[in-house]
Amino acid sequence: MPVIAMTREMGSGGREVAQRVADELQLTLVLHHLVEHEIADHLELREDAVHHLLEGGATLTERLQVGSGRLARYTAEEILELANRGNVLIRGWGACLVLREVPHVVRVRVCAPMDVRERTVMQRQGIKDRQTARREIERNDATHKRILRNVYGVDREEALLYDLMLNTERCSIETSTKLVCDLADRTEFRETNASRAILNDKTLEAHIRIKLRERFGTGLGAMGVTGIEATAHNGKIVLRGTAIHGVLVDDASKLASAVPGVKEVENQMVIVHGPRAFT
Rank of each mutant, 00 (worst) to 15 (best):
E214T: 15
A184H: 02
D182M: 12
T192I: 06
E191R: 09
I208D: 04
L179R: 11
K211Q: 15
L160K: 14
L183W: 04
V151I: 07
E169F: 12
A206D: 03
F216I: 04
C181L: 05
N150K: 14
L199Q: 06
E191G: 02
N167V: 09
T203L: 10
L164S: 06
N200K: 13
E157M: 12
K178W: 13
D155I: 03
N167C: 12
T203P: 00
A206Y: 07
L183N: 08
A206W: 03
V180S: 09
D185E: 10
Y152C: 07
N150L: 12
R196Y: 09
A197S: 02
G153I: 11
A194V: 13
R209F: 13
L212D: 01
Y162S: 04
S195W: 13
R186H: 08
L179V: 05
I198Q: 03
G217Q: 11
C181F: 01
D163M: 01
D201H: 11
E157Y: 10
K178Y: 13
T168W: 06
L179G: 05
I208N: 05
D185H: 05
N193W: 14
D182G: 11
E158K: 12
T192L: 03
L164R: 02
Y162D: 00
R196P: 12
K178F: 12
D201N: 11
L161S: 04
K202D: 10
E205H: 07
Y162K: 02
S172R: 10
A197T: 06
A194P: 11
I208C: 06
T203F: 09
E214D: 15
R209G: 15
E169H: 13
A159K: 10
R213L: 09
E174S: 15
D163F: 04
Y152F: 01
A206T: 08
A159R: 10
V151W: 10
L212V: 10
L160T: 14
V180N: 09
R156T: 03
L183I: 06
R215N: 01
T192V: 01
E191S: 08
L164H: 05
L212A: 03
D155K: 10
Y162R: 05
L179Y: 06
E188W: 00
D185M: 05
F216P: 00
E158W: 08
R170Y: 11
E157P: 08
F189S: 01
L160D: 15
A159S: 07
T203D: 06
S195Q: 08
C181H: 00
C171H: 07
D163E: 05
